[in-house]
């Protein structure tokens, strides 16, 4: 099994109401220089290893985890170091 971390964010150019609200809050709290905030999702999957791993993850993202109309996704595969 490997851990897969999927990150889902709104596409560039799609206004992110949550990100905007967080940015305003940070500015109001006195944190200067916060130019942009994006709020997204992190989904951790534990999946079986295999040569088709990338294809499977991409298919999961396209079909269910992300909405390709407004969202982008990236993922990282975390393999435990061999002892």
């Amino acid at each position: 099994m490997v851990n897969v971390h999927v990150y889902i964010t709104l596409k560039e150019g799609v206004l992110d109401p949550q990100g905007k609200a967080v940015q305003h809050s940070l500015t109001a709290l006195g944190y200067e220089g916060v130019e942009e905030v994006k709020v997204g999702k992190w989904i951790k999957l534990e999946v079986a290893e295999g040569s088709d791993l990338d294809a499977r993850i991409e298919s999961m993202c396209e079909q269910l985890l992300a909405n390709p109309v407004i969202e982008n996704y990236t993922y990282q595969v975390e393999r435990e170091a061999q002892v």
Binding site: L10, V14, L15, P17, Q18, A21, N67, V69, I70
Partner: peptide
């Protein structure tokens, strides 16, 4: 219907959250 692709587009959180 949007998620099913029967209609185009998608829904986001309301602007005022």
């Amino acid at each position: 219907l949007l998620e099913a692709g029967l209609l185009p587009g998608a829904m986001k959180r309301n602007t005022n959250l």
